[in-house]
Design a protein around this nucleic acid. Structure first.
Lengths: 199, 199
DNA sequence: GCCCAAGTAGTCAAGTTTGTCTATCATGGG
DNA sequence: CCCATGATAGACAAACTTGACTACTTGGGC
């Protein structure tokens, strides 16, 4: 129906949330400094498309166009309440769903985790850490499968070796981040303004 | 003009090279067992499109359609001489070009390295190993940049930490594979049939 | 004072990907 | 013996992505 979850939509919606009211060209500049074109394959053109598509779905709204001199007018966007809900849904989905070869998920999480609560991100990271143990095991079985298969070339095995190596690196990183979050690094939506943590 | 390099084209052209004469549905089945839909994001539909597009560019050629009973006829494809040249070009390009966030490149190399020569693959892996050292260094400077930037959120830093962790894992894997290739693991286009390695 | 390179803001056609749909054949359980 | 399920083989509309293009402004070198 109205557009599934995709890295592009999530990144653009998250960036609108963060910088609103914001026009396409600002997002384009800002996201390029994050190198999203490299780690999420988001080219400038896709940003404008994502904005139109998110608007059609009612997740963002035009909030005025201003034109400076005779330059092309720029349209500003704001996130809607429905957009906030959808953003949380997509983020949560990305945080808790661990796919063996999805290397972008964690990048997106790193970029927008502050929108969730510190507690949830830590819990999600811990879930990811143990899920990776499971995937590494299944990779082992895949390796045995390819060894037995007649048509599948032998070196497809390397794909799983590589996947395992990368996942272990990601696991190390997740452990380190979770630990640092527990010690209060970065600030989150739910952080108390001052004082000791509530409860 | 006639279609740039892309993982989809490379994988499909490589698979035609390997299994020719071959029809779309065979590729679809075979490539799914390699889990290309997961590590290269190649969905069945894209395979048929890649075949048509490669045919238009003259890299593959229809080599007969056979129909079994009244089932949909299946069209077989063969690679052309121009296709062999293009396949080598794309593979070589993928082997020697190291992009910091391109996680698919190495997967493709693992799948089709046997088409190149053992010597070239080993040399390419060694180049990759030292290139990764350089990228890890530049990641460090990117981290300093984001620390200084006003708009860029602080945790964008995590993206580079993660990239570095993954690259080091890839480096370990590349070292291990290069070593094993030197000791004669897997077979390559240029391997002598028997006897000691020529030189 | 003039010119050109770079920046601003976005559109658009052409190409690619996705998921769903069609239509036939095989098979095995009840 | 019948019919539901799954495999076979591919087509296609809708959505998304890409890279080139428009059209104006600003800044800096000479």
């Amino acid at each position: 129906m109205g557009g599934m979850s995709s890295p592009t939509r999530l990144v653009v919606l998250g960036a609108v949330h963060q910088f609103q009211p914001v026009h396409g060209y600002f997002l384009r500049r800002e996201l390029m400094t994050w190198l999203v074109d490299e780690w999420a394959n988001i080219q400038p053109g896709s940003i404008y498309n994502a904005l139109r598509s998110l608007e059609q779905d009612g997740y963002v709204r035009e909030s005025g166009t201003e034109s400076d001199g005779k330059r092309p007018a720029r349209t500003s966007y704001t996130i809607t309440p429905a957009g906030e809900v959808e953003l949380m849904r997509m983020l949560r989905d990305t945080l808790w769903n661990v796919e063996p070869f999805d290397t972008q998920a964690v990048m997106v999480i790193a970029s927008f985790m502050f929108i969730l609560s510190r507690q949830e991100v830590i819990a999600g990271l811990e879930h990811r850490i143990s899920k990776i143990d499971a995937i590494v095991l299944t990779n082992g079985f895949h390796i045995e499968d390819t060894a037995r298969s007649e048509t599948t070339p032998k070196y497809v095995r390397e794909i799983f070796e590589l996947s395992t190596a990368r996942l272990k690196a990601e696991q190390e990183w997740a452990r380190s981040l979770a630990e640092r979050l527990r010690q209060g690094e970065y600030s989150f939506a739910d952080d108390p303004r001052e004082e000791r943590p509530r409860r």
